[in-house]
Design a protein around this nucleic acid. Structure first.
Length: 216
DNA sequence: GTTCTAGAAC
DNA sequence: GTTCTAGAAC
């Protein structure tokens, strides 16, 4: 059936509809959680007037949660201004509390990092809290890997300091975004370069440098 | 963001 | 023959 539809589109020479992504329901899932947490399909771990804390639906590490801002005006980091620094401090506090809970359940876990994707795929400002093991079946491809281990991942502290100094976040150029997403696979601990995902996943499971990574 | 799968890479 | 990546999805 799918194959049939693909062939049909090709046969008629139909061009892709650029509005499809913008209106796609999946891109609004986090916004829906933020605006209507009581209707959320997944468990809400914590909620107040400013944020909602949930586990990532497709965790890319043993421990992976999202702190989602509830302000409808905050669709991404591009909407952040100096006035939002207190909100970021609150998001940090909520994330750190969750990290401590996870750590108490799993004392041997490696470091955690807090931060944002430069160009997120989903609407609504959300901060990742993710353990640096990246041991998860949902971590499947180069884009996944590079979105957490290259400059595509903006640590919370960097976002805070750029807001404080410039008053807004400079969004990276599309060409740079694509370059980072497509770049070679490299261990985030020892910088060893690898060709294939299975090779990388096997390596990071045993790399000593990964175990000693700095972080929370 | 994920799923699916054709065809490349092994 | 099997594993793996990468692009379409309306």
């Amino acid at each position: 059936e799918l194959q049939h539809r693909r062939s049909a589109a090709k046969a008629t020479g139909d061009e892709p509809d650029p509005r499809f992504k913008l209106s796609a329901p999946w891109a609004q899932a986090l916004r829906n959680v933020a605006l209507h947490p009581e209707k959320a399909q997944q468990d809400v771990l914590y909620k107040d007037d400013l944020v909602v804390l949930i586990r990532d639906a497709f965790p890319k590490a043993k421990h992976h949660a999202l702190v989602v801002a509830r302000d409808p005006m905050l669709r991404s980091i591009a909407d952040l201004r100096k006035e939002h620094l207190p909100l970021l401090a609150h998001m940090k506090e909520v994330a750190l509390r969750w990290v401590q809970e996870e750590r108490s359940k799993d004392p041997m876990t490696v470091a955690f990092k807090l931060g944002f994707h430069s160009v997120p795929s989903m609407a609504q400002l959300h901060m990742h809290a993710v353990s640096q093991d990246f041991n998860s079946p949902a971590l499947k491809n180069k884009k996944h890997w590079n979105s957490f281990t290259t400059r595509f991942f903006l640590p919370l502290h960097n976002v805070e300091s750029e807001l404080a100094s410039r008053g807004h976040i400079t969004i990276m150029a599309h060409a740079e975004q694509e370059q980072l997403e497509g770049q070679e696979l490299r261990c985030h601990g020892c910088s060893k370069s690898m060709t294939l995902m299975p090779e990388l996943k096997k390596h990071i499971a045993t790399c000593d440098a990964v175990k000693r990574l700095p972080g929370i």
